[in-house]
Amino acid sequence: MTRIWYVAYGSNLAIARFRCYLSGGRPVGGAREYAGCRDPNDPARAEGVEVPGGIAFASESGVWGGGMAFFDRTLPGLAACRAYLVTADQFGDIAAQERRRPPGGEFARDLAGLLPDVESVVATGPGHYETVVRLGELDGSPMFTITHHDVASLPLAAPTAAYLQWISAGLREAHGYDDARIARYLAAAPGAAGVWTVTEIEELSRGAHVGG
């Protein structure tokens, strides 16, 4: 069984939200029911990681309303992420759900088969989360994330409170950030910057104990 690291940087930082992709369900505050993976088991491991780049909020989420988080390697600094050790098939099913395609379908199976050969970036077609990016290795297994191929081309948009609360909970779980650090990190992200203040996000973060 091939295992790889799925690297989350948005609401999937929080394990309770990520489990909707794994075992199905609707996240608190979200507008979408997820089918789940063919293999619904939790990741074998989860590790907080930082990768060069940052996150930006853009376009409009059909789950949360407001801007969606995208990983952008061209941004300065480090993105606070969480790496989940999953099977290649689980990753294919996660990516399929991001694309609103069925877990276990042709797209998911083809992507799982492609992963061993992805050296940098692979585009899987049109859509917001259509690009798989390899982010190096952790403990001998490759790390991949899912984002847009050209984040700078997307219209910036402020995220909703519910979305920020899930990300806040995930940053606390994965990195042990306190509310003030969470607020500084998110308030600086393009799309949120100038719309959400540090104080406002810090207040949201205090009520964001939604993981578990």
Score class of each variant (00 low, 15 high):
G25K: 14
V122C: 03
R206N: 00
G30W: 05
V7P: 12
A88C: 10
S205R: 02
A183M: 08
H209C: 01
G176P: 06
L111Q: 13
P155G: 01
R17E: 04
V7M: 15
R38F: 06
A183D: 02
I15T: 10
R17D: 03
R19F: 04
D117N: 13
S61F: 07
A58M: 02
R100V: 12
G127Q: 06
G191E: 08
G62L: 13
E50I: 10
E200N: 02
P52Y: 14
P76T: 14
A161W: 14
A169P: 01
T124S: 04
A16G: 06
L114N: 11
A56W: 09
R100W: 05
P190K: 08
A189K: 03
Q165A: 05
G140F: 07
H148S: 11
A193Q: 12
A69W: 13
L204P: 00
A161I: 01
L85I: 13
L22I: 05
T2W: 12
Y9K: 09
L111M: 10
A162C: 04
Y6K: 04
A158T: 05
L111R: 09
M143L: 14
W5G: 10
V51H: 07
A95Y: 15
R101D: 15
L154A: 09
M68T: 13
E137N: 03
R181Q: 01
A193Y: 02
G104N: 11
V28Y: 07
F57K: 01
E106F: 15
R109N: 00
Y177F: 12
V122E: 07
G24Q: 08
Y34D: 09
G66E: 06
L22P: 13
Y34C: 11
R32V: 15
M68R: 13
G113Q: 14
D139T: 05
G207P: 04
T145N: 05
A183P: 05
L186S: 02
Q97A: 02
T145P: 01
A80R: 06
D42I: 12
L85S: 13
W5M: 06
T147R: 10
A189F: 03
L135G: 08
G92S: 05
A208E: 01
A88F: 15
G127R: 10
G125A: 03
G176M: 02
A88Q: 15
G140Q: 04
T87K: 13
A83P: 14
I182Y: 06
E202K: 04
Q165L: 08
M143N: 04
E33C: 08
A14V: 07
A31Q: 06
V63E: 15
T2S: 11
A208C: 02
G211T: 15
V7S: 09
C37P: 11
L171Q: 05
R184D: 15
A83K: 06
A192Q: 14
P40F: 12
P159N: 11
L204S: 00
S59Y: 10
E47D: 12
A58R: 10
T2A: 10
L186R: 00
V198K: 01
H209R: 04
D72L: 07
I55K: 01
E203C: 05
H128N: 07
A123G: 02
G170W: 00
Y34V: 09
A69R: 14
H148K: 04
